[in-house]
Computed example of a mutant assay.
Amino acid sequence: SEDVVVQSVRNLQIRYIAKKNSENQIVVVAIKLNVPSEYSLMKEDEYSYLSQRIKIMDRLYHFNHRIDGVLVEQSKSECMIFTTKKIIETETNQYKDFYLLDALREVSAVPVYIGIGYGKTANESKYNAYESMKKMERSRQNSVYIVFENGEVMGPLETGRGAKKQDSFDEKFYRAATETGLSVNTIYKIFGGIVKEEKADFTSRELAAICGVSVRTMDRIILKLCDAGYCEVISEKLMHKSGRPSRILRLHPLQIYNG
């Protein structure tokens, strides 16, 4: 009958509108930087921490632009990205490739926790995002958790390259100290100093000035760095009209900062 046809069309319209509303459902991505502890080497060097934060925020703003979201910085260590269900699921291929994790790994020595929340309202999505981030903090993995509006949890999600354990900033310095037989403070002074200088090639005299030691002491340190693969002699240069040429040394900070 005509009434049945009219009712069927109305039901179809309702289902279509519901589907469109679902696609435009607000999704919140919560990100938290694991601020170094009081006894961390990075905590003692504000420059290193701020440098890491700038690199991380650059990747976050790039991701935010890709998903046409709104990024809100809650504090120096926390921020949120507001987007829609359709956009983020399309951009990440239904979360099969959450490439933001890989992008952050490339630049960060600071652990970054990510949680995603769905909800019927923006507040509910925000709450679920923080709930999923708590799961991330407890697991301490380089992955992502999602909490949906019905309370269902998905995760941990792998990235396109596969998740792998990432050493913390301090662990990388301790590892380098073990491999070279040098103290952690010496390793930190050298590699922290070359990051501030924004170059990788030095003479032993320049490195001695950075570390506050004699050139003879630095020559012994350089020998240990070279043996462990953290340094190499790339050339020699005559610094004065007379005397022996100085070695030009290239250090490899990426072995520490990017693993």
Rank of each mutant, 00 (worst) to 15 (best):
E73F: 06
Q74C: 07
Q74P: 00
K76E: 15
E78W: 11
C79W: 03
C79N: 08
M80L: 10
I81M: 03
T84Q: 02
T84S: 15
T84H: 12
K86L: 13
E91W: 10
T92D: 02
F98G: 03
L100S: 02
L100K: 02
L101A: 08
L101I: 07
L101H: 02
D102F: 03
V107W: 06
A109K: 01
P111R: 09
G117H: 10
G119P: 03
K120G: 15
N123P: 00
N123G: 05
E124C: 04
K126H: 08
Y127D: 05
A129S: 15
E131T: 12
M133S: 04
K134R: 13
K135N: 09
E137C: 11
E137D: 02
N142C: 06
S143H: 13
S143V: 03
Y145D: 02
Y145K: 03
Y145T: 03
V147L: 13
F148A: 05
N150C: 10
G151K: 06
G151Y: 13
E152H: 12
V153K: 08
G155V: 09
L157S: 11
T159R: 05
G160A: 08
G160M: 02
R161Q: 11
R161A: 12
R161L: 13
G162I: 12
G162H: 10
K164N: 10
K164Q: 06
K165C: 01
Q166W: 00
D167H: 01
S168N: 06
F169T: 04
E171M: 01
K172P: 00
K172E: 11
Y174W: 11
Y174D: 07
R175F: 15
R175Y: 09
A176F: 12
A177N: 02
T178G: 00
T178K: 00
E179T: 13
S183T: 15
T186W: 00
I187V: 11
